[in-house]
Design a protein around this nucleic acid. Structure first.
Lengths: 220, 220
DNA sequence: TTGACTGGAGAACGTTCGTTCTCTAGTCTA
DNA sequence: TAGACTAGAGAACGAACGTTCTCCAGTCAA
């Protein structure tokens, strides 16, 4: 790195044309900028519809450096999915733990998913979409999707266990969440997403109640 | 090609290399052969990973005729999805109606989905995958997916209504089915698919039972 | 048999892709 | 200041794509 960076290490964009530039950006910021652009563009348009050139333009990271950071486009996609996984599940955890009641926490999962699904430009679950596009041709991407889905399922299992419900109920809570994710992504408009989320939440509530009722009947 | 083909108009393949040939095939058969190839290849590898040349080779239908039958690749994909929709839902209907008990019919949906998900080369739900790949860039494909999912949901609604359960239960049955489709597609191996199907089936059963119990309690 | 016609095989075309290479402006050491 | 070096902007490259076009074997009416 050079003296200019030392003088202004916060400098991130500097092009006169207004497009992002990675000039003098430290490598870690460049990687972040690249993954930011990849996350947004791949999510909105798909993986194959976005070329490396658009990633370069949107992130301001030169092609030469992109290929210095990652061996190829596929690796960028995997890194993006993994980074998103950490952030996504962290945000979900933060959201649900704002509630004290363990039962309410489980239902709050659906609130959070609904919020995520109705935003502008949203197109469902990034991992489901990635699997749909690349699951058949890219094993690394397929594995990243399986990692995320397994982690999500595990996280839900913990929440449901804390609510005192059975593992069978946890399984159902998970399938309802996946059903909401895929259906909410496809239907498109916000009203339908809200309706679908309400359906999932109500079904989850019924299953949690019936577990509790069963437990009471069994004297647990 | 040779005179032997002319003598046998029903002949559908005739290449010495073993690949399909559409020579002398009537246009309706050519369309069917094309959609057969499109269905298989697009499903296994994705839409953008399969070029028109491979469609031509696999179906035996010349490019000239493909572009005579459809204005472009996108239209082939939409036609394939629509044709598959009719066959897919027809087969589901046939399967569930082999059972007499309306309650059992609903559960049989999950049996059938499980069968579909464990076959070799299977990669989940063709419509979910198509949406993941093209939902952001092709409105005709996105609409075909929405058509199919709306029809599937409606079909399930009829089955659940015939079982005497509420519309809320029907919604849950649908979300569980979607959750099974997406999860079963991603997890890959047959054991995990079977386990997921069992989870969905059990949750559906509980929801149907609780509806029935609720109805009895309410004196209906 | 002749001539017009049809339709298939595959070449051709223009574009776009992922990836690599070149050139140059700017920086640091001595 | 001189020279080695770094890194970015964009050209270059080979491959593959969707689509169109060319050419010729085969067919049918007269």
């Amino acid at each position: 790195m050079d003296a200019a960076d030392a003088r202004d290490p916060t400098r991130v964009e500097g092009s006169a044309t207004g497009q992002a530039s990675a000039r003098r950006m430290p490598p870690s910021s460049q990687e972040a900028a690249l993954l930011d652009a990849a996350e947004e563009l791949f999510y909105e348009e798909g993986y194959q519809a976005v070329g490396m050139d658009r990633l370069r333009t949107a992130s301001g990271v030169p092609l030469k450096r992109i290929y210095g950071l990652f061996p190829g486009k596929e690796a960028v996609a995997v890194a993006m999915l993994d980074r998103r996984d950490a952030r996504w599940r962290g945000a979900l955890d933060t959201h649900v733990r704002r509630h004290e009641d363990p039962h309410r926490r489980v239902l709050a999962v659906y609130d959070w998913l609904e919020e995520r699904l109705v935003g502008p430009g949203h197109r469902g679950c990034a991992w489901i979409n990635a699997f749909g596009e690349l699951g058949g041709t890219s094993e690394p991407v397929a594995e990243a999707v399986r990692r995320h889905k397994a982690s999500f399922r595990r996280d839900l299992g913990v929440l449901v266990a804390e609510a005192g419900a059975s593992t069978a109920t946890a399984d159902a809570i998970h399938l309802l969440a996946e059903g909401l994710l895929v259906t909410g992504g496809i239907v498109g408009d916000a009203r339908a997403v809200a309706r679908t989320a309400a359906e999932a939440r109500e079904a989850a509530d019924r299953l949690l109640q019936s577990t509790a009722a069963g437990s009471r009947i069994a004297g647990l």
